[in-house]
Design a protein around this nucleic acid. Structure first.
Lengths: 352, 352
DNA sequence: TTGAAAGCGCTAACAA
DNA sequence: TTGTTAGCGCTTTCAA
């Protein structure tokens, strides 16, 4: 029906000029001087014909495809994915680029296969992302490619990376608890995630805890306990129950993510304890859960959207300036930390 | 460093044959008979040089790129995205294709721009997806393209679509309630989602309710009430509170999604009612929430992964047979519906 | 100011 | 059985 696409040759013919001339005006190059009249004819012809350049052909010629790849280990499960992709898409779209997605499932063979597939398609660059912040080894196939690391980092090479600012997130969470007036009975649930699977802890946990402990030390406040456990609802539930069973009634709980907080809510509720009147709860991630819980959960947000967007910006705008970009994690104040109207004491965190 | 990619010319030269011969053996074409010896030389050369075909060049020549596009209205927010993309990725990868993602945000202009961008890159086909099941108008730019609809449908053209089997989901949910022994005090929360924003209801609501009502009628059981409201936690909470305030203590709640169920749990808990002992709860979607709630929530799953995978399979394998593919929604039995061990009475739904 | 022509890496019709 | 050749649609050098 609509038949074959109109090519530049069609446009040139209709405008009565050579393909060269058409190419120059359509590319908007002003260096080779073309008569205003010819230019106008070409533009009109292109418009009338509905001409659109074939980017495959252009890519073959120039080896730029205006296509970038987002390869990540696991994309599914968590809501991480959605907003990261959203941010990446927005940044790519704003620069007239398009985004290829791939998921390696943590398998190096799959990874190699996928990366080579993208290379075969001449992508202009890669965002290499992980679901959970951690150190990575860059796959060999990516050695000579433009790459930005998202939510991970590497020591092997000087490749730019984009990470959430977890230390300050920890500082802010602690500051919220202090600003709510607590100086004792403060417990941390989740800790560094030092469990069987991750005996050294996970990066987010280590960083958040560092921030928390810094602020506590500065305020001369002692944590009453740090429970190391997995970060699922059942873990939060179990550990808080255990706390309560030991007659240790906490005044404030810093939970290392919203799922842990959910478990904590459940355990507190079972004992007839009320948030925030009896126990103050502060959390991390600011997932949907934080708004769904009753009362609303105060949580330091993982800035998924900005992470995705920034990674693509760094990739495409290519400012090599800072090698690691730390994206601030905004604290979302809701009702679970008591002093809902009081912002965290700015004096506690002078660094911002 | 590694310099330019090795091309087929390099391979041919090293194997001492023409580019044609190299092309034929590398493409695995056996119709033009090539000596086993030449073939072997070409293969060796390709292997030794680490040859990989440039898919951009091939695409220009053959106009097949082994690249498909997933364009959807909103990708972020819900966990829908993650699993759908995951399924699509798996199916595409298994067929050695790669996936381009785009998000229109419901804006037709954005949509046109994005679709044309993909067309300019010569994608082989489109999966056109929506976050919530509904009817759509296919954008004009997609008229001449290979398209599969995902989670939506259109009356205008005979384009294949992939949809969750919501009617049977409704049937199964109702069957679970009946199998748990309830014949009265059954309330539905959420209904057809007939609210200000969507006065006619939403597709999922209409279909689920049809299934529910069919089964109830067949069993000669009367629903005690259907509450029409939005499907957020606060709505479930408010409506169940209202129910309880009216001294209508329900025996069973069918909530139209897991978020509504969360709100219901909260309201029941506030009144000291226990799930499932006092009230049986059955839900839809089977999101993470369903596993996180205590007790675990019995929920009819939206088969996100299979939806995504099937859409790509239909697109790539191109069986035109059924125009609409209904993907079954498995019921995930947990603790909230009481008779945890009893599967829904198969006699109730003979159609499977 | 414009056009001819080469070539990006690949496929495929045709000739040898 | 293999090689020559002509493109796919575009950019860009060079000559006119």
């Amino acid at each position: 029906m609509s038949g074959r696409r109109v090519t530049m040759t069609d446009v040139a013919r209709r405008a009565g000029v050579s393909r060269t001339t058409a190419s120059f005006v359509l590319a908007g190059r002003r260096d080779m001087r073309i008569s205003g009249e010819a230019e106008e004819r070409v533009r009109r012809a292109a418009r009338e014909l509905g001409y659109r350049p074939n980017l495959t052909a252009r890519g073959l010629r120039t080896s730029v495809t205006r296509t970038i790849a987002l390869v990540s280990d696991i994309i599914a499960t968590t809501q991480f994915a959605g907003e990261v992709i959203h941010g990446a898409l927005d940044a790519a779209g704003a620069r007239d680029h398009v985004l290829l997605i791939a998921e390696t499932e943590g398998d190096p063979n799959v990874e190699t296969r996928l990366v080579e597939g993208m290379l075969d398609r001449q992508v202009d660059g890669f965002v290499y992302a992980t679901m959970y912040s951690r150190e990575v080894r860059l796959p060999a196939a990516l050695r000579d490619a433009r790459v930005v690391l998202l939510n991970c980092y590497t020591e092997e090479a000087r490749v730019p990376c984009v990470l959430p600012d977890e230390v300050n997130a920890g500082r802010d969470a602690a500051a919220v608890v202090l600003a709510a007036g607590h100086r004792e009975g403060i417990h941390v649930i989740g800790g560094r995630h030092m469990t069987n699977g991750t005996p050294e802890g996970v990066w987010a946990g280590l960083e958040r805890m560092r921030g928390i402990e810094e602020v506590m030390a500065e305020a001369d406040v002692r944590l009453d306990g740090v429970v190391e456990c997995d970060w699922q609802p059942e873990d939060g539930h179990r550990e808080v129950r255990r706390l309560l069973a030991a007659k240790t009634v906490p005044r404030a709980l810093i939970c290392l993510n919203d799922r842990v907080s959910l478990g904590a809510y459940q355990a507190l509720q079972e004992e007839g304890l009320r948030v925030p009147d009896d126990v103050c709860v502060v959390s991390f991630d600011d997932s949907d859960l934080a708004t769904w819980l009753r009362p609303g959960l105060t949580s330091v947000a993982l800035p998924h959207y900005r992470l995705g967007r920034t990674a693509v910006e760094v990739l495409l705008d290519g400012k090599p300036d800072p090698v690691v970009h730390r994206i601030p994690m905004p604290v979302m104040l809701r009702a679970s930390h008591t002093a809902a109207t009081a912002p965290p004491d700015p004096a506690v965190r002078p660094g911002t």
